[in-house]
Design a protein around this nucleic acid. Structure first.
Length: 292
DNA sequence: GTCCATGTTCTTTA
DNA sequence: CTAAAGAACATGGA
């Protein structure tokens, strides 16, 4: 479900409703959906142990701030610790769910305070690729994450990318280089910048880096304004859908005409991911390369 | 039954 | 050692 625009939309909705509220009840049904210190693919510990641990760490804490870092919904707590929710592919955060979803794994109850209503926050995720991670005080929240794409300069983007010897798309998906883009927005950004996804990073020109940087920011801003793309599962915490999927130029449009030149959109497999591009307007580079 | 899916980590290979 | 490629995770829809 979530890349940067979807996560930003979730955060924008959660923040005004939950900030300042105190966690008065934690219900963790699956210990393998939570972890401490870092995201783990699979848990080898005794079932339930981490869940109980996290529950006691969160109980009676007050939420001081909610923000986004990369694709993570970050929650700052009043003792200086943080937690984050990574939504994986199908994760969903819902406020005051009317009916409990089939795959709800963690539920936080927040008390009413200072004239503001109490709330329930439910984290559900059918595929269970997501996770709630607790970060103790002092733990770096940026570990292994590259810079935010919306804060990049084209110079920095060029430097980051030209070091890698692989297709541009593969580098753009690497969260250690740039954190927040995923399959949809990489394809859309490359199309907007008229760059071929298979182009080697080493062949990136300064002009292309500049176009790419502008395109990434423009696409992300438009997508945030549209509250993200709802392909299937994604909903904001009040249950509404995003609408940016209507503005996709290449993603999931194989065979349909390119909006710029009417050439049918192509689809290939790259880094194990579906990759969509216009074979006519996403062309080979010309000009001086940033790397040799 | 098959293939595919907005993501990431872990393992294997080069 | 590093970098790249592939498998694994798990569920559900077409």
């Amino acid at each position: 479900m979530p890349e940067l625009p979807e996560v930003q939309s979730v955060v924008d909705e959660l923040s005004p409703v939950l900030t300042g509220l105190k966690i008065v009840e934690v219900s963790c049904r699956r210990g393998d959906m939570v972890s401490i210190e870092r995201f783990r693919r699979k848990h080898t510990e005794i079932a339930g142990e981490t869940g109980a641990q996290i529950s006691s760490l969160l109980l009676n804490r007050t939420i001081t701030r909610i923000f986004r870092r990369a694709k993570r919904v970050m929650v700052a707590l009043d003792d200086g610790s943080h937690l984050y929710i990574h939504l994986g592919m199908t994760g969903n955060l819902e406020i005051d769910p009317k009916v409990e979803a089939k795959h709800t794994h963690i539920v936080l109850k927040l008390a009413a305070r200072q004239g503001r209503a109490g709330k329930v926050l439910a984290f559900s995720d059918p595929r269970r690729f997501g996770q709630l991670v607790y970060l103790p005080v002092g733990r770096v929240i940026d570990e292994d994450l590259g810079p935010e794409p919306l804060e990049l300069t084209s110079k920095r983007l060029g430097e980051l990318l030209c070091a890698a010897k692989r297709p541009l798309k593969s580098a753009l998906l690497d969260q250690r280089l740039i954190a927040g883009l995923g399959n949809i927005y990489v394809d859309e950004s490359l199309h907007a910048a008229r760059i071929h996804p298979l182009q080697p990073c080493t062949q990136l020109t300064a002009q292309q880096a500049d176009r790419l940087c502008r395109s990434i920011k423009q696409i992300l801003k438009q997508a945030i304004a549209a509250k993200g793309s709802t392909l299937r599962d994604y909903r904001t915490p009040d249950g509404s859908t995003g609408s940016f999927q209507k503005m996709h130029r290449v993603y999931d449009r194989m065979g349909q005409p390119c909006h710029r030149c009417r050439t049918p959109v192509a689809r290939i497999l790259l880094s194990g991911r579906s990759t969509h591009f216009c074979p006519a307007c996403q062309i080979e580079p010309s000009g001086k390369r940033l790397a040799q």
